[in-house]
Amino acid sequence: MSARNPLVKGVDVDSRTRCSHYHTEVDIVAIKFLCCNEYYACYYCHQETASHSASKWPQDQWNEQAILCGNCQHELTINEYMSTSNCPQCDSRFNEKCSNHFHLYFDVTNESS
């Protein structure tokens, strides 16, 4: 467990990082945005409350800790997060439908030609 509890910004964020947009039992992941180095509960929270546009994490930075488990505050790298459906620290289940939104946070385009 992390010794610190990063601030998670957003709209009506609860103690497990759920927000007004995503608030089911498994919506317990916050994303650190590359553009501001701040955790937000979701893309829409960033869009509504930040004073700037979001930028996506490039693939060469996917080893950065940028994912926060809302249950235990453990920080995961983007690669770790993209390859699991549970927190490696507390085993809490993450929403598997979040992978549908990876393109909002991470540069998932394959630009190799």
Rank of each mutant, 00 (worst) to 15 (best):
S20E: 07
D60H: 11
S15G: 00
S113G: 11
D12G: 07
C98Q: 08
S55M: 01
Y81T: 04
R16K: 13
E38K: 15
A30C: 09
E48F: 08
Y22I: 01
N63W: 00
M1L: 10
S85N: 15
T17I: 12
C45Y: 00
I31H: 07
N86H: 13
C35R: 13
S2E: 15
V8F: 04
C87F: 07
K32W: 05
V29R: 00
L34I: 15
T109G: 09
H74M: 07
C35A: 15
N79Y: 09
S55E: 14
V8L: 08
P88I: 02
N79M: 03
S20L: 12
S20D: 10
D12Y: 03
N37I: 06
G70W: 02
S2H: 09
T24P: 07
D91M: 06
E38V: 15
G70Q: 00
Y81R: 02
I28T: 05
E38T: 14
D14I: 03
S92G: 08
E75T: 00
D60Q: 10
D91G: 00
Y43T: 01
T17W: 05
Y39V: 09
N95T: 05
D12L: 12
E25Y: 07
A3W: 04
N86L: 08
F106P: 11
P88M: 02
S15D: 13
C69S: 02
T49K: 07
N37E: 14
S99A: 05
R18W: 06
Y39D: 14
C87H: 09
V108R: 08
Q61D: 14
T49G: 00
S53H: 02
N95M: 03
C69L: 02
H21W: 05
Y44Q: 11
H23E: 04
H52W: 04
R93L: 11
R16C: 03
A30S: 08
C87S: 12
E80V: 04
S99P: 00
C90L: 01
M82G: 11
I28D: 02
N79T: 09
Q59K: 14
A3S: 14
Y44E: 14
E80T: 08
E96K: 01
A41N: 10
Y39C: 13
V11G: 07
S20R: 08
